[in-house]
Design a protein around this nucleic acid. Structure first.
Lengths: 227, 227
DNA sequence: GTATAATTCATACAATCGTTTAAAACATAC
DNA sequence: GTATGTTTTAAACGATTGTATGAATTATAC
């Protein structure tokens, strides 16, 4: 077994187990057991459990965001200066993710579910890394959306982006609190239907009439307590 | 210190710590330390850590869902047989939750963030309990929405409800992956603005044009969706 | 008051955690 | 072949985990 082989086996096993049980509940012995490598291999190849977690994210997230930016680049080049349609922008961002989530073989599905749940529980030390990985991507997509939706202020775009991330996260995680999705079955037609459903929902929300905000709630430098 | 006092102190401390660190990462010693009670008090009053977790949820969730149903009852009684407006239904469901989330004193805020992240990570033994608590509520709200939106099939309603739960969860959890919300500051006007933003987004998504599903992806009888 | 039950307390338990170590096994270069 | 550097291995480390115990304390009933 070559070095790179061992590293990959650990990453794959960790990704899968993290998805199922979370970071803290997953032990190194589970991981090395599933990967069929020695217990000490994790600390030898990654240094620590925390670094392993970071690497599990980095491996897929970097690639995912590259794909997103690349797709956005392509669309904007095609449009030749004209604003894109909102649906195109959303497809560039969420389409890539959902395609990854639907890819059972590549293991991307497991990762996307892990990612979705991690957004809402940034475990201290992944938070900084996550924000860093997303900063550039978010900025690009925000400005594209601002151009595509002249009537919607930038801050509102950000919020709606946030909401859309939540919707996508739940869609992928497929929490069966609602008994809609079988935990581990998501075939091609299911994935396509889910994608279509999510996309129409998001577009509706993105283009919704602006909320009527109270006069007093204009953003001021935060410090105040409840009024 | 009376018995009920100790129980409450433990529940409050656990809720807060679970929110910050998650279930597994929170130790009984942290909880009893924060609650200023003896370590053995948890096992004495709750039997085990798992039962404590369940009780943390039960305490607030039961009340929350009662409020939701009560509010829906009130609206339907007022409407006297006529379908409600979608916005009214959403307000009954999400408004109560967001009001709870904005209530800093009552401690509901901490719980709502905990709940939001738990949806996407049903830790084996909370899953069943969670689904059970939600079954009746979901059924009521689904049928109300179906009546309110004659053009949208029931299955689509369920999916969109799922998406809305995700959006709300992220909104409350306030993951600062997007650097929008300060982790622990959400005053009254912020909460109101968030509520307005989320509501308009959701309504837009709920009333969006139906997705065009591929012909081949017609649902085969999968284990039935929640009745 | 005393007796009985409920609660708190300090302490200990076995189990499991992430990590470390030093030797064994393997690879590569000369 | 030997020598050198890398990877794997089995075993152990101290620390921390959830839980259990029995005595001390407090509350309740008589």
């Amino acid at each position: 077994m070559t070095e790179i082989d061992t590293r990959l086996r650990i990453l794959d096993a960790a990704e899968s187990l993290f998805t199922r049980y979370g970071f803290e509940a997953t032990t190194l012995r589970q991981i090395t057991g599933a990967a069929e490598v020695n217990l000490a291999a994790v600390n030898y190849h990654f240094g620590s459990k925390e670094e392993l977690i970071r690497e599990v994210f980095r491996r897929r997230l970097t690639w995912l965001n590259q794909q997103r930016l690349q797709e956005l680049d392509r669309l904007e080049a095609e449009a030749g200066g004209k604003p894109l349609k909102p649906s195109q922008i959303l497809e560039a961002f969420f389409g890539v993710a959902l395609k990854m989530a639907a890819d059972a073989d590549g293991g991307g599905r497991s990762f996307m579910r892990l990612l979705g749940r991690t957004y809402s529980k940034p475990s201290e030390f992944v938070r900084g890394f996550l924000a860093e990985e997303y900063a550039a991507v978010l900025a690009r997509f925000k400005s594209a959306l601002v151009r595509a939706l002249p009537g919607v202020p930038g801050e509102e775009i950000l919020w709606r982006f946030h909401f859309m991330l939540g919707a996508m996260s739940y869609a992928i995680a497929g929490t069966d609190a609602l008994h809609i999705v079988a935990e581990d079955a998501l075939d091609d037609s299911d994935a396509q239907a889910l994608y279509a459903r999510l996309m129409s929902f998001m577009l509706g929300g993105l283009r919704a009439p602006l909320p009527v905000l109270q006069a007093g709630s204009a953003k001021r430098p935060r410090a105040k307590a409840a009024a």
